[in-house]
Amino acid sequence: MIEGTLDVLTTRYAYALMFVLMGIGIYMIIANENLVKKLIGVNLFQTAIFLFFVAVAYVEGGNAPIVPSDGSDPGLMASPLPHVIVLTAIVVGIALTAVGLALIVRIYAEYGTLREDTLREVRADE
């Protein structure tokens, strides 16, 4: 059992790391009172998923997925599809961060705080 786990950890350590990173992201979202740090947590969470996709695409001994201009066989290649997916997901992530930061700027302008606990108090007073 322990040997099996160790075996998985040594050969698939990228996946294990990805879930650790994801856990850190979720923890930041839940436990951090600062709104900007919460958003950083969201970003970390998403980045973990991007890394996961990149790891999925890895082929041992594979080349970059570019077909030579003379049309010759490039041999073993890494899968290009997950890379394209990650590229799209990064763009989506940037848009989300931008909207989130814009909202945080507005919250700061209205309430004068970035901390969620203070925000809760201010709103309870109203």
Binding site: I26, I29, L35, K38, L39, V42, F45, Q46, I49, L96, V99, G100, L103, I104, R106, I107, E110, Y111, L119, R123
Partner: peptide
């Protein structure tokens, strides 16, 4: 109201988690 920005941010964080 300023509450709408807070509600939107809450939705943004949870909605992004869902999509992720």
């Amino acid at each position: 109201g300023p509450e709408s920005a807070v509600a939107a941010l809450k939705y943004l964080i949870l909605g992004t988690m869902g999509a992720s």
